[in-house]
Design a protein around this nucleic acid. Structure first.
Lengths: 198, 198
DNA sequence: ATTTATTATCGCACTCAGTGTAATTTTGCA
DNA sequence: TGCAAAATTACACTGAGTGCGATAATAAAT
């Protein structure tokens, strides 16, 4: 009899996770080495020690490998972090604090590499923008939970949009400076600048 | 000797334009009928009365057919319209006026159809977001011309982002209401709502 | 321990988008 | 008329992604 709530990881689950992570790791290595377009699915499969067909058992497309590698946990952390804010403040202030808190925890060196890869192809560039929109949606949903008045929904959406725009500006500046300062610094600057536009 | 400044359209140019437009028209018809994914390149080529290979002489991808059909001139009109605004006003006010002016001129029934198609596939949805970012860039560039002080560039970028976000909200509302009111109406509402968030 | 049901892996053959190449036809122009 | 550029085409190829069916590995049940 084993600990009730502590679920033991079986052989199957372990192997699955290992293979999944191996695909991402090898895939990313190849993308960096030969470029995204220059890397074939067969090459990834071979490097990961699986068949071409099995690759699609784990990922439904080549893009998904890159996107899976891209996600450093920021998106998962966003909702809880937002709900953690007090509703007794202006939404824009709350979201600003929330983003700055997350920024320090999830900024990663690798993200510069990802970004370069994501810029290498039209389809990937487009996908990158789509990720921002998804994140905006997550943020909006969380805000709607925090301030549940239905009449505010549209206004909150605008705030979420504005916040994500500000984050985009901060990220660009950060990457442009080769991460000289912590991301939170650029975020603060961007939000300050935003306030001056109104 | 023919009129100097009035360039006559030769047979070659005419045929080229006709073929180009025929591909878009037939392609769009098929997309609506069988869905984007359900429409093959060969089908488009056959409907347009050209060979598969010739299709790629006109368009570099299937997506491009849809995007070419999508563009109703709004993007081309944006820069001149923005530059037409007086720089003696707050950037956000100027961009608001500019967008409202354009809205009435370029809202089209077809755009609801396009939008449905664009939502049918992950790649197309992503591409749609990317178009917004491109448009934001056009807007930003125009604003930087109108207020050329380099120190303002970042602030103007934020304004451009905010404006495009507001436009997105207005478009969603407009489509949600099945274009019951003119787009300009929703745009005014959205900008009013925006002002209340600060 | 043996059977049974899942889950993972793989191979094969297929469709479809997109490219390279080279040949052929059409059009513009001298 | 003849010559150059542009348009069209066929053919063969790569690479992503899917459908299907077989086989092996693991978990669960008897």
């Amino acid at each position: 009899m084993k600990g009730a709530s502590e679920r033991q990881e079986g052989v199957r689950e372990r192997k699955r996770r290992e293979t999944y992570e191996r695909i991402i790791e090898k895939g990313l290595r190849l993308f960096v080495k030969n470029g995204y377009e220059g890397t074939t699915l067969d090459a990834i499969a071979e490097a990961a020690g699986i068949s071409r067909r099995t690759f699609f058992y784990y990922f439904k497309s080549k893009e998904d490998v890159l996107l899976a590698a891209h996600d450093s946990g920021f998106r998962q952390a966003l909702r809880p972090a937002m709900l953690d804010e007090s509703p007794d403040q202006a939404p824009l202030d709350a979201v600003q604090k929330c983003l700055i808190k997350l920024a320090s925890r999830y900024e990663t060196k690798e993200s510069v590499v990802f970004d370069r890869l994501m810029d290498s192809t039209a389809a990937l560039r487009a996908r990158k923008e789509a990720v921002f929109v998804e994140t905006e949606q997550i943020l909006w949903d969380a805000m709607c939970e925090l301030w549940p008045a239905p009449a505010r929904r549209d206004g909150l959406r605008l705030v979420a949009m504005v916040a994500m725009g500000t984050l985009r500006l901060a990220l660009d500046k950060w990457k442009q400076d080769d991460a000289a300062h912590p991301l939170a610094h650029y975020l603060r600057q961007a939000f300050t600048l935003l306030a001056k536009q109104f």
